[in-house]
Design a protein around this nucleic acid. Structure first.
Length: 492
RNA sequence: GGCGUCGUGGCCGAGUGGCUAGGCUGGGCUCUGCAAAAGCUCCUACAGCGGUUCGAAUCCGCUCGACGCCUCCA
């Protein structure tokens, strides 16, 4: 029987601001949409945290036995840059600066995005559609909204009429805003004179001469507006009402608000049952963002080539660091935080490597079933990975006690213990054991030989020789551990 | 100025109306030739001020502060 039938998963819904029992539209199946990156530069660690959070969610849903269709778009056109070059597409601008084709920029950074997420061990989504691949669908939505009178055309551009929509719906329902407030509090921006109201947003923008990326439409040669692609692609692949929509907290307004307005106008139903927002990763107390330069790239962490960290940290240690915080909490990225996480990660991995050394008994002195349940309880409570990890450290203790024979476990319990531990560590959290298991027999053979030589030396009380062997191995990153049952080693 | 999230021990981070996670760091003990590892253990916190309550860090109010959004942004 599928696990979801016996586990009551609760999800914090940004729309209701409460934790709700998760019930998919179709039993046993989940449709999940997550706003993907705009591929105009290298993906930074803040982006990665969001995608990693939803990867963990994707993994747990699958673990529970749901058939999940996970859609995450690639924004390769359509986002306007609102600076001096008003109306210019971000990707087109980058292309002109680098004197290459726009799709070359798209290709380069899409590849970077995929490589980075793969390094951090994210699973690929089920479908990864592109904005440029869905221009037709977007045009159809604009036509429909125009017909319903909730959009208007000016000089070849089409804008969504927010005030009119707000007559019957609540624009701001997700972000807790009222349109009246924003009318009084919106700063004046240049280049918006075409709009009836500053709150209106573009569905279609006419391209000027310099704009390279353009498509024909009934209104002009141009490009789709800021928020339309997600409405188009989520509806196409997941249906008019789907289960989970995710994204970074900073997309809540206006992006997701606009999505709701567009989709609701087009389809007449609530587009999303559960809105989920991953919180920001900050660096030195400040937001990590490309625009301010306050950011770190994942590769700079893995290589150690950066000015923030004292050394390089592996993808799994980095992933573990982020999973130790709740996805809804702001997390500060610091050197000491990463160092602490790395140590914990190594401790966990060593315990997992040692699990095969456990010998079984007739009876169990530890309650494996209760421990297992605590792991599920943590994840069922809105994907509480910090509590899950606390339980995993309890498991580490179990492993060490069992190896030292200070606790006992039955064959049956050990099987459950191993399966559960592996499922949560590797399948759900998506960690990898990066400890150089170099179980290449040659190396472990050599070390075993040295351990034997050291034992002889110790038996002869030749401490100088035994310590020399230990210290020189340590200098090579091989640590010897003397236990009751003999000496073992680990490679760092 | 508006909206929102949040303020937990040396640090990071859960949680919650009474039983007070976990990790890292530091101290002590056991084991050990010494060390490391491991086990045990200690350091016992919830921004401030009021209020509700038998009882609040947990609920309510105010103050202060941090961060985010309000313009593309995970």
């Amino acid at each position: 029987m599928e696990l979801y039938k016996t586990n009551q998963l609760k999800i914090y819904n940004s729309l209701s601001k409460t934790k709700e029992v998760f019930k998919p539209v179709i039993e046993g199946k989940v449709g999940m949409y997550v706003c993907g990156p705009t591929v105009y530069s290298n993906v930074h660690l803040g982006n990665v945290r969001t995608f990693m959070s939803f990867d963990m969610i994707f993994r747990y849903l699958k673990h529970l036995g749901y058939k999940v269709r996970y859609v995450r778009n690639i924004t390769d056109a359509g986002h306007l840059e609102n600076d001096a070059d008003a109306g210019e597409d971000r990707i087109a601008k980058k292309a002109r600066l680098e004197e290459i084709e726009p799709m070359e920029v798209v290709q380069r950074y899409t590849v970077d995005f995929h490589e980075t997420l793969q390094k951090i061990n994210n699973l690929p989504p089920s479908i990864e559609p592109t904005a440029t691949g869905h221009i037709v669908e977007q045009i159809e939505i604009i036509k429909d909204i125009l017909e319903k009178g909730l959009a208007y055309e000016v000089n070849g551009s089409v804008y969504f009429d927010v005030l009119k929509y707000n007559e019957n719906e609540h624009y701001g329902i997700l972000s807790g805003r009222n349109i009246e407030d924003s009318i009084h509090n919106t700063r004046e921006l240049d280049g918006q004179s075409e709009k009836k109201n500053p709150q209106d947003f573009a569905l279609w923008k006419k391209a000027d001469e310099r704009h390279i990326m353009r498509w024909p439409s009934p209104w002009s040669n141009g490009f789709p507006g800021w928020h339309l692609e997600c409405s188009a692609m989520s509806t196409k692949y997941l249906g008019e009402t789907f289960d989970i929509h995710g994204g970074g907290m900073d997309l809540k307004f206006p992006h997701h608000e606009c999505e709701i307005a567009q989709s609701k106008t087009k389809n007449g139903v609530e587009p999303v049952n559960y809105w989920m927002h991953a919180n920001m990763l900050i660096l030195n107390g400040q937001k990590m963002a490309k625009s301010t330069g306050n950011y770190i790239l994942p590769n700079e962490i893995f290589s150690g080539d950066n000015k923030i960290l004292s050394k390089a940290f592996s993808p799994s240690a980095t992933r573990f660091f982020m999973l130790q915080a709740n996805y809804r909490s702001i997390l500060d990225f610091t050197n000491t935080g990463l160092e602490a996480a790395e140590k914990g990660y190594i401790k966990l991995m060593e315990a997992l490597s040692n699990i095969d050394k456990i010998e079984v008994s007739k009876e169990s002195s530890i309650d494996i079933k209760a421990w297992k349940q605590k792991c599920y309880d943590a994840m069922n409570d809105d994907f509480n990975t910090p509590v899950l990890i606390a339980n995993l450290f309890e498991a580490v203790k179990f492993v060490n006690l069992l190896i030292e024979k200070k606790a006992t476990i039955s064959t049956e319990d050990l099987a459950v213990f191993k399966a559960t531990l592996n499922a949560f560590v590797f399948d759900v959290l998506g960690l990898k054991n990066e400890l150089k298991e170099d179980s290449s027999d040659k190396l472990s053979g050599v070390v075993s030989m040295l351990i034997k030589m050291r034992k002889d030396a110790r038996d002869n009380k030749d401490w100088a020789l035994s310590d020399k062997i230990r210290d020189e191995l340590a200098a090579l990153g091989i640590q010897l551990k003397d236990g009751k049952e003999g000496t073992t080693f680990s490679i760092n």
